[in-house]
Amino acid sequence: MMIETTNYYRWRKFKNRFFQFLLIMAAIAVLTPILLIVQYTFVKGAGSLNLDFFTNLPKPVGEVGGGMRHAILGTLYLVAIGAAIAVPIGIMAGIYLAEFDKKSALSRILSFAIDLLTGVPSIIVGIFAYILLVVPMKSFNAMAGGVALSIIILPIVTRATEEILKLVPDHIREAGLALGIPRWKVIFMIVVPGSFKGIFTGVMLAISRAAGETAPLLFTAFGNMYMSYRIDQPMASLPVQIYNYAISPFEDWQRQAWGGAFVLIIIVLGINLTSRAIINRNELINFFSELKKKLNSKKA
């Protein structure tokens, strides 16, 4: 048994430290884009945010005080339609994939289809919704936009649900069955409630992704300069509105576009952070009470 020489040990320590350094650099590289984006849009866009921005509809070029109220509400509206369609179906599909015979033909086809759907370019999704709903209704409409978004949301929710449920060990299900509980009750009252956090996170991720999609809305909801709540009429949404203003030659509109971009980022980040806060509320509460204690003890 050889005793290591100090030199070899030092070389090994160095290798460890170097590798650790590389990994930290990689982590920073991942963080950088998001920080830069938020910072840049803040710098460019925060200035445009005033009460008018949130409460007013667009005004003709040149007039002061135009806003994006219709687009903000429109985004929320369209995402809500999309989620209402896709979330229940997606969760049920995810449950099917996770809980029933994984070797059956239906399971395999479904799994493959979901993978394909994730890869469909969002513009194609928009074209599909156009053919499906815009053509028969002979006008752009919010429903088509909602359906397009639901196609985006669906595979994400399905996969997330499936993966979360797969994490539940089989013997939990068997324990439920062994108590003489029918299988559907085992799934819906034991397995799924136990994975609620994970499924909720998956749904939130899908929704925040859909909120930022532009291409599918281009020829479905199309965009509107006026406030509309009707599903058979075109509807504005933040991404499309930003796009329209950004490519316009008007400086005022371009400035508003930056504002819109910043709001969109806040919405997306906001959905994410809020959903995490709700899920981890216990840890949050603990964290803050610990903090309080520490501050109090420092004072004393």
Partner: peptide, 21 residues
């Protein structure tokens, strides 16, 4: 089978209390 299992209970190798309950 569901009724049978109400008369023949089972305890498993890994303790498995239902999560979130």
């Amino acid at each position: 089978p569901v009724l049978i299992r109400r008369n023949i209970g089972m305890v498993f190798q890994k303790p498995n209390p239902f999560p979130s309950l």
